[in-house]
Design a binder for these strands. Structure first.
Length: 853
RNA sequence: GCCGGAAUGGUGGAACUGGUAGACGCGCCGGACUCAAAAUCCGGUGCCAGUGAUGGCGUGAGGGUUCGAGUCCCUCUUCCGGCACCA
């Protein structure tokens, strides 16, 4: 065989072999256990970045491993092809988003192929193809007819200069990214999907999802946010009628401590108060400034204004002033809260700021009063005090009694409350799936009939930043009402791209079916056995997909399937430093590769400059993203070292679930290993068979022990130590002076199979070259031989008072008495315990002896 | 702010259910080969003291449980992810 390792040619040859053999085509086969392995599909942003390489290598390792374990494997790939970056690129380069997207797909597909991933390309999909998004539209009309899709108003970021809606990402420090104008909140009509009708099920099912990380399930649980509490009303008179201000609380036991109520700025009562009170009107309009994200609202200073109105406490009958508070969210509960400053930190701060009374009604661990400053104990449960007939009751009994009394007055009672909100899917953007609705002046919102689907998105438009170009395109908007045939207008909003990605995993099963969304092949493959993707999708994408799978189930498209992903592996983010420059009044992000950095002795960044000497601002370390221009392109790595080295290096760098701060220092080590493997095999190929020498038993033990550990690590998905294991086996083989023996032959065959999922090209080649077989992919996965793992002697760690002082070899069969006798006779005992009293000897069988003095 | 994570040598990371901390790499130091360099190979490498055998210290910080803690418990710090229109 050839003397030197030449990745370029062997990778080309291996890929050609797989192509010819159709190695990665997946066919339904009821006789074999299936393994549907899916990595989250990429957004075609231009080039792959290291996060992609990591994600797809992890998936590829798993599929190649399970294929060798006898599973019928499906691993497809496609493109999350709609989205904002295409519109931004279109504006920057005057190219239609469609062209930009298709060009990117072509380039990135080439990159994926060059990495040798075992993908079934015949199932490729792109969400921007009408054949795909037709089914988004079709399903939407089903949900619309069922009432699971509906229209209401939602709040968006509004750029008053460009007269357009901005994504949260496009709002920087409260200003529009292009215009610099202060962003306002604005309410507009939009379509929502009723995910909340599945709240209970989405929450309850989490408990049985053993294949998901606890961490992700916990995040989803908190996100869905089921809380048991009391919803009740404060009656008031307004405009000559009796009205009720409803609030929800999980602390009904503190109801006698209410000293004010606060409503959201958008609350009807706030709007009514504003009519007569200019201070309220001014405050409400101030609240319109700023972004819409919960994070922004949560960190802003708590502010409020008195409405001058008051409501009646439902139990005490006292008058309670109503305030408008910028921290009250209209989207949660009734958009109003009761204010109990003594036992809620936020209310406490609010009351101190505005001089509202504070009334302590709970005996908490820190006493009967709530002197400033705020202490966490004030919010703890305790028995009621200063609460009239509820005095002395604990949390549960007070809540029951109060709920009962409210109920008797017809003013409320216990209620379940959810944090989860319905999913607003309307986007005022061009590059997305058109929402299939026709607005008719006579018939209202009419869903597009099946025969007219898909509503095709024209692909030749170029957005200019001033709103959706579809809205200006008469050939798109003008249509006939499907019901009454009179002239009507087509909806121009498009769908949130999360809709596209909420069911793509099912479409991979039958991408060629143009007659229905899903068919019986989805029954065969679904659910996905292993889903792999970034931890950043822990909530939204994964929750929406769980919701959609249930919606599909209930449309009889996926009978019996409720959960889309049986097992979930959340890979850690690949992080990189990011730098920007604000030169010229506009923020431009500079690729880290183009920045030169000065650091202090601890590695902290002192100054950064671009290659052409411009000052750059360090913006911390964070996820690789198109918008921050800090993606590291793997192409240079692949070209210099080959795909196998790139794959090995990213796998070896850290366990899949850890975040990884990108650095390609050390990539040489992976390349060196593959070269070393190659040259070992070349020597092995030439060596004459010989008989095993004496040391061979130890080599065999070592190799099989490493294999045992590697197989265990594979189950844990800890692939970095599997790569280590391969290195250890090669080290053992090289150390073994036995040449070509049964032991080294066995060891090498284990090594090539163990490594083949990670570096498939080189292993494919060596497997054939050394005549182990035709195709390593079809070889059986190696298992350790129990005989090889037998040991006659065990090394015991010896500790005195928990400090390790040495070790002791003992027969495998030695019992406690024998070990103690050995220990007493040892020099270790004489040295460390000579004239001391032994209080106790702790023996961990097979491992350790600890002498307590 | 709220929810979820993470922190181990100069560096990426390893350590089975609480049992020899630093596997396997990178870097660095020394050596071999070479006219020389690259590549390759061999040896060393947590920190401090000591010529040395050895001893002390050591897993973000501070407490605790235990014969024994990187691992379990409490408090804190810093960093990362998410927060519903980035994907």
């Amino acid at each position: 065989m050839q003397e030197s390792y030449e990745p370029r040619s062997i990778e080309r040859d291996a890929q050609a072999f797989w192509n010819r053999a159709g190695s990665f085509r997946a066919l339904e086969d009821a006789s074999r256990p299936k393994y549907y392995c899916l990595s989250m599909f990429p957004y075609p942003s231009g080039k792959l970045h290291m996060g992609h390489v990591r994600n797809y290598t992890i998936g590829d390792v798993l599929t190649r491993y399970y294929r060798m374990r006898g599973r019928n494997v499906l691993q497809p790939m496609g493109w999350d092809a709609f989205g904002l970056p295409a519109e931004n690129a279109a504006m920057a380069n005057s190219v239609p988003p469609a062209k930009w997207t298709y060009d990117n797909i072509a380039y990135m597909k080439g990159q994926l192929k060059s990495l040798g991933f075992a993908l079934d390309w015949e199932r490729e999909i792109a969400t921007c193809h009408p054949e795909y998004y037709k089914w988004n539209q079709w399903l939407f009309t089903r949900l619309f007819n069922k009432g699971l899709a509906y229209k209401k108003t939602g709040v968006v970021n509004w750029d008053p200069v460009d007269q357009t809606v901005l994504a949260n990402e496009q709002v920087i420090d409260g200003r529009g990214w292009r215009t610099g104008a202060l962003v306002e909140k604005r309410e507009i009509p939009m379509y929502f999907l009723r995910i909340t009708s599945y709240s209970e099920e989405l929450l309850a099912a989490l408990d049985a999802m053993d294949g998901w990380p606890e961490q992700v399930k916990l995040m989803q649980k908190n996100w869905i946010g089921r809380s048991e509490g009391v919803r009740f009303g404060f009656p008031y008179e307004m405009d000559g009628g009796r009205q009720i201000l409803y609030v929800f609380t999980t602390r009904a036991d503190t109801i006698m401590g209410v000293t004010f109520c606060a409503v959201a700025p958008e609350h009807p009562l706030a709007l009514r108060a504003a009519q007569d009170n200019s201070a309220v009107a001014t405050f409400i309009s101030q609240c319109r400034a700023g972004g819409v994200t919960e994070a922004e609202i949560a960190v802003q200073e708590k502010q409020g204004v008195a409405t001058g109105l008051s409501v009646t406490h439902p139990l005490s009958g006292e008058q309670v002033p109503v305030w408008v508070g910028n921290y009250v969210l209209m989207g949660y509960g009734d958009g109003a809260v009761m204010g109990v400053p003594a036992h809620d930190e936020r209310d406490y701060a609010f009351a101190l700021k505005y001089g509202l009374p504070i009334k302590c009604v709970i005996r908490h661990p820190a006493g009967d009063g709530v002197p400033a400053p705020w202490r966490a104990e004030y919010a703890e449960h305790g028995e009621c005090i200063h609460s009239g007939r509820y005095d002395g009751l604990d949390y549960a009994r007070a809540t029951d009694a109060i709920a009962a009394d409210l109920s008797a007055r017809g003013l409320g009672g216990k209620q379940l409350q959810w944090r989860l909100r319905d999913w607003g899917i309307s986007r005022q953007r061009y590059w997305g799936c058109p929402i299939p609705i026709i607005h008719c002046a006579h018939c209202g919102d009419v869903p597009v009939p099946d025969a007219q689907l898909p509503v095709v998105l024209p692909e030749d438009l170029v957005p200019d930043g001033s709103g959706n170009p579809l809205a200006k395109l008469a050939s798109f908007t003008d249509c006939a009402c499907p019901k009454c045939a009179r002239p009507a207008k087509r909806e121009t909003d498009t769908m949130d791209t999360f809709v596209d990605s909420s069911w793509y995993f099912a479409r991979y099963c039958c991408p060629d079916n143009h007659r229905s969304m899903l068919d019986e092949r989805a029954q065969y493959w679904m659910p996905v056995d292993q889903y792999i993707g970034g931890i950043e999708h822990a909530i939204l994408h994964l929750l929406y997909s769980r919701f959609f799978t249930r919606a599909l189930r209930d449309e009889h498209l996926l009978p019996g399937v409720s959960e889309p992903f049986a097992n979930l592996l959340t890979q850690g983010m690949v992080l990189a430093e990011s730098y920007y420059s604000d030169a010229g009044g506009r923020r431009t992000w500079i690729n880290p590769a183009d920045v030169e950095v000065a650091r202090d002795s601890k590695g902290r960044i002192l100054a950064a400059k671009t290659r052409d000497g411009m000052d750059a601002v360090y913006d911390g370390i964070g996820t690789m993203s198109k918008s921050k221009n800090n993606g590291v392109d793997p192409q240079a790595l692949i070209e210099k070292y080959g795909a196998d080295t790139a794959r090995l290096f990213i796998i070896f760098a850290s366990p899949p679930t850890s975040t990884l701060e990108w650095s390609d220092e050390g990539v040489e080590g992976s390349y060196r290993f593959l070269k070393r493997l190659w040259s070992y095999c070349a020597r092995f190929d030439k060596a004459a068979p010989s008989v095993a020498a004496g040391s061979q038993k130890a080599t065999r033990f070592e190799i099989h022990a490493v294999l045992r550990q590697a197989n265990y690590d594979l189950q844990k998905h800890q692939f970095n130590t599997v790569a280590s294991a391969a290195m250890k086996i090669l080290n053992a083989l090289e150390r073994s002076s036995g040449g070509r023996t049964a032991v080294t032959e066995d060891g090498l065959s284990i090594l090539l199979r163990l490594l083949s999922p990670i570096t498939p090209h080189v292993c494919h080649h060596l497997w054939r070259e050394l005549r182990f077989g035709e195709d390593v992919m079809r070889a059986a996965w190696p298992e350790p031989d129990p005989d090889a793992l037998e040991q006659d002697e065990i090394e015991y760690v010896v500790q005195f008072n928990g400090k390790t002082r040495g070790s002791l070899r003992a027969a495998r069969s030695a019992d406690r008495d024998a070990l103690e006798a050995l220990l007493r006779a040892s020099t270790l005992a004489q040295k460390h315990a000579a004239d001391k009293i032994v209080k106790r000897i702790v023996i961990v069988p097979g491992r350790l002896i600890n002498v307590v003095l």
